[in-house]
């Protein structure tokens, strides 16, 4: 280093020696708190998003499917308000994008989504998800159709017996 560079070096570090400790201490002292508490509002939001967070009703029946090689446990319940719900718990995340769950009439697995298919909700992740079964579908046998919205195709369909919702 030449003399003038040695001076720049020294005074640079005098500057850094003043600024950096201030940044360090202020950065720690002003650190905001991001404490999160689960409030009732959060519970409602989870329920709206289809997560099974609330009460467990009276079990009706259970079944299991395989969607894109992922086993899914299915359980139907009757809640205290009389509504019937279907809980799906994938063993791990589905390797398919944007999966929607439909109920469709018929005894054969459909190739494409029927016009009369009823949307129950979306399925993602490996959490237990809850789908409400509308009153007019209760006690009807049909198909549960797993449809990839992003790929616009039916991933798979599984028979959904009338006993599941009776």
């Amino acid at each position: 280093m030449i003399l003038s560079r040695r001076q720049v070096h020294f005074y640079s570090f005098v500057g850094l020696g003043i600024i950096l400790p201030i940044v360090f201490i202020a950065g720690l002292a002003l650190r905001p708190n991001y404490d999160m508490q689960a409030t009732d509002a959060a519970t409602d939001l989870f329920a709206q998003a289809g997560f099974a967070t609330g009460e467990d009703g009276e079990a009706i029946s259970s079944d299991s499917f395989t969607v894109a090689r992922v086993p899914i446990a299915a359980e139907t319940l009757r809640l205290t308000d009389g509504s019937v719900v279907l809980d799906l718990t994938p063993k791990k995340s589905l390797p398919v994008v944007d999966v929607l769950v439909y109920w469709d009439a018929g005894s054969e697995a459909p190739e494409a989504l029927g016009d009369e298919a009823v949307l129950l909700g979306n399925l993602a992740g490996d959490a237990r998800r809850r789908f409400e079964i509308p009153a007019e579908l209760q006690g009807q046998s049909g198909q549960l159709v797993f449809y990839s919205q992003a790929q616009s195709q039916v991933v798979t369909a599984a028979p959904f017996a009338a006993e599941m919702t009776q």
Partner: peptide, 23 residues
Amino acid sequence: PIWKALHMGVYVAYGLLVGHVVL
């Protein structure tokens, strides 16, 4: 001398990185 001045930019970079890590 100019090369060294350019490479003394590492002191500025060090200061920026301390900020990057702290913030």
